[in-house]
């Protein structure tokens, strides 16, 4: 019972922090808010008994955001915060209303996702006393072997792109 309350509280924190990430004018505050989102998600993973994913979430994302943080300080001119004034044209208002409706739909559909999904029994793995990390390892190298390998090619493409596009003109 207590865990479900914590889940809700952490969820609310995550949403508020996510909004703050988008709405902050100062990029440093945005980066800090993003860390809060990641930590809140990690807590939720922990409550779902996924310790390994929670830890990975913290290490990878918090680490990545620290890098982002450094880049923000190095590359952006923090002295002047630019002010954008967005005029409310009729197109923008219509767009905002449509987006709101779309979001509402998403939320309603999301609440309709139930735990008793047909065929969910298939996924109740007999853990045989194995811990979280071992189960994930087994899944990665058996059923999800090919996706695991294909991800490496996707990453390679990303690296090539970064090098090729980022390289200085000769």
């Amino acid at each position: 019972m207590i865990t479900s309350y914590i889940t809700i509280i952490v969820g609310i924190v995550a949403v508020i922090a996510a909004l703050s990430t988008v709405l902050q004018k100062n990029p440093v505050y945005s980066a800090v808010s993003l860390i809060v989102v990641m930590v809140a998600l990690a807590v939720n993973y922990l409550l779902l008994n996924a310790e390994f994913i929670a830890v990975i979430q913290l290490i990878v994302y918090a680490g990545a955001i620290m890098v982002l943080f450094v880049f923000v300080i190095m590359l952006l001119n923090l002295g002047e915060v630019k002010k954008y004034k967005i005029e409310a044209t009729s197109g923008r208002i219509a767009g905002a209303i449509l987006t709101g409706l779309f979001f509402l739909q998403l939320v309603v559909a999301g609440f309709n996702v139930t735990a008793n999904v047909p065929g969910i029994e298939r996924f109740f793995i007999d853990t045989k006393g194995l811990d979280n990390t071992k189960i994930i390892g087994h899944a990665l190298f058996s059923d999800y072997l090919l996706p695991f390998e294909v991800v490496s090619i996707v990453l390679i493409v990303g690296i090539i792109g970064a090098v090729v596009l980022g390289k200085k003109k000769e």
């Binding site: 996706p147 996707v154 596009l165």
Partner: peptide, 21 residues
Amino acid sequence: FLILFLGLEMMSLSIYVLAGL
């Protein structure tokens, strides 16, 4: 869907880079 999505990303990322070459 997992491998479909990875294939989609592999294709899209390559094309994004190619477009800017």
